[in-house]
Simulated assay, not measured.
Amino acid sequence: MASNRAKKLLHKSTVLQAEMLEELQALVKSIERAETLLTELKQDTEEMNAKHQHRRTTREDIAYLEELLKCAKKKLAWEKQMEGVAKRTPEVLAKVSAAMNDATNPPEPPVRVAVLDLLQTVQGAMGRLDAAKAD
């Protein structure tokens, strides 16, 4: 009976580890999407400012303001994306910590390596995102 219970705990632990890896990968993708969106936003803003640098008429002012509104909407989408990342990150890291510190069913070495790689990817992406925000 005890071995059946141990098998169930092992299975549950394996499922939790797989879910943790999936969530960590999703977090990486979300951060990378936010980084891409921020880069596009900066590029669009620079192009818009260069294009409308010498406005002389009201029509040109309106065209500039319409493009500025598009950039503002894109920035709002980026901010929402960042809020989601900020909200999800602690939850995902708590799952990672719980799975990695499981004394009864610790993750296998390949899982540990995958988690380490993903955490390094998160760290690198966050660094690039912070650098992009600072520019």
Score class of each variant (00 low, 15 high):
3 S>A: 12
3 S>N: 12
7 K>V: 06
7 K>F: 10
10 L>G: 01
10 L>R: 14
11 H>P: 00
11 H>T: 10
13 S>F: 00
13 S>T: 03
13 S>W: 02
15 V>H: 05
16 L>S: 11
17 Q>W: 00
18 A>D: 06
19 E>I: 02
20 M>R: 04
21 L>Y: 00
22 E>A: 05
24 L>H: 03
25 Q>K: 14
26 A>C: 01
28 V>F: 01
29 K>V: 06
29 K>E: 08
30 S>R: 07
30 S>Q: 12
30 S>V: 01
32 E>A: 04
33 R>P: 03
33 R>S: 11
33 R>F: 05
35 E>Y: 10
35 E>C: 06
36 T>L: 12
40 E>I: 12
41 L>C: 11
41 L>I: 11
42 K>C: 05
45 T>A: 12
45 T>I: 07
46 E>S: 11
46 E>N: 09
47 E>S: 10
47 E>K: 10
48 M>E: 10
49 N>C: 04
50 A>V: 04
53 Q>W: 05
54 H>G: 05
55 R>L: 09
55 R>A: 05
56 R>G: 07
56 R>Q: 08
58 T>Q: 14
58 T>C: 03
59 R>G: 09
59 R>N: 11
60 E>S: 06
60 E>F: 05
61 D>E: 12
63 A>R: 11
66 E>Q: 15
67 E>Y: 07
67 E>F: 06
68 L>H: 13
68 L>T: 14
70 K>F: 10
71 C>Q: 11
71 C>V: 14
71 C>L: 06
72 A>Y: 10
72 A>T: 14
72 A>E: 15
75 K>F: 10
75 K>W: 13
76 L>S: 13
78 W>Y: 15
79 E>Y: 08
79 E>T: 13
80 K>V: 09
80 K>Y: 07
80 K>R: 11
81 Q>E: 10
81 Q>N: 11
82 M>L: 11
82 M>N: 14
83 E>I: 08
84 G>H: 03
85 V>P: 07
91 E>S: 12
92 V>D: 04
93 L>W: 08
94 A>M: 09
97 S>Q: 15
98 A>G: 07
98 A>L: 15
100 M>I: 13
101 N>F: 06
101 N>Y: 04
102 D>Y: 00
103 A>D: 05
103 A>M: 07
104 T>N: 12
108 E>Q: 06
109 P>C: 02
109 P>F: 00
110 P>E: 04
110 P>H: 00
111 V>I: 01
114 A>N: 03
115 V>F: 01
116 L>Q: 10
117 D>L: 01
118 L>A: 02
119 L>T: 01
119 L>F: 02
119 L>I: 04
121 T>D: 09
121 T>G: 00
121 T>Y: 00
121 T>K: 08
124 G>A: 02
125 A>H: 04
127 G>K: 07
127 G>A: 01
128 R>Q: 08
128 R>E: 12
128 R>I: 01
130 D>S: 12
132 A>I: 05
132 A>M: 07
